[in-house]
Design a protein around this nucleic acid. Sequence first.
DNA 1: CAAACTGGGAACTCTA
DNA 2: CTAGAGTTCCCAGTTT
Length: 218
Amino acid sequence: MSAEVASSWNSFQETQSDLEVILEFLEDYYRQNTAENGVPVHERSVSVNQTRVQPWNCLELSDSKPAFQTCLAHSVQSASGQNTTATLSEHGSLPNFVSTRQSAKHPATVAGRACPVPAGRKLRLFHFLFEMLEDPSMAHCLSWVPAAAGVFRFSSRNKDQVAALWGQRKGNKRPMTYQKMSRALRNYARTGHIFKVKKKLTYQFGRETLMSLQKFYG
DNA sequence: CAAACTGGGAACTCTA
DNA sequence: CTAGAGTTCCCAGTTT
């Protein structure tokens, strides 16, 4: 085997293991969700181009593991005691899935909802972004670039809102900014999850990453 | 020219 | 304790 073949085989394996991690994650989540609700996610999700229903939003909030604990306008609103999201709500629309910020110590603890997520599964930035992209109500913040697979673009106006939401989701002590978030995004280039596109505010999901995420809900 | 973006090193935090 | 995955700071380069 030549060195060239060997190295591409290695990168193939790396990609594979990345894929496996993502798939494993999604499968676990799928199983849990199905078990809890009795209805598979894909049967409740309709996908029509840009106006896909946000599947993550059908998922329940997790307890201490922040996995894909999206959405749930109803449960968020019921947590009336916490209005840390008010600052954002006042200045723009909040997505359905934004939960209120929990204590700094336990950012992902959401009142009243327990969703068993396998240990070691944390919500990652590219999950969060995919989530938002699948939510039509967030199209004013970031959206898919038509006719370009996996390419998405932040709104120049609302990019910081996306970042702020991400920061809230993680329960960061300090407010997240687009600059800091994009730094994290750039780190994804090394792992192949997301790449920078030579265009303003535009990024692209890695091919394999995107396929895995999409395959999840067909 | 200024502002907005982009890119990257490095130290640091947090969590499994 | 260690490693992974960001987070934060800061500064320089590029684009609009």
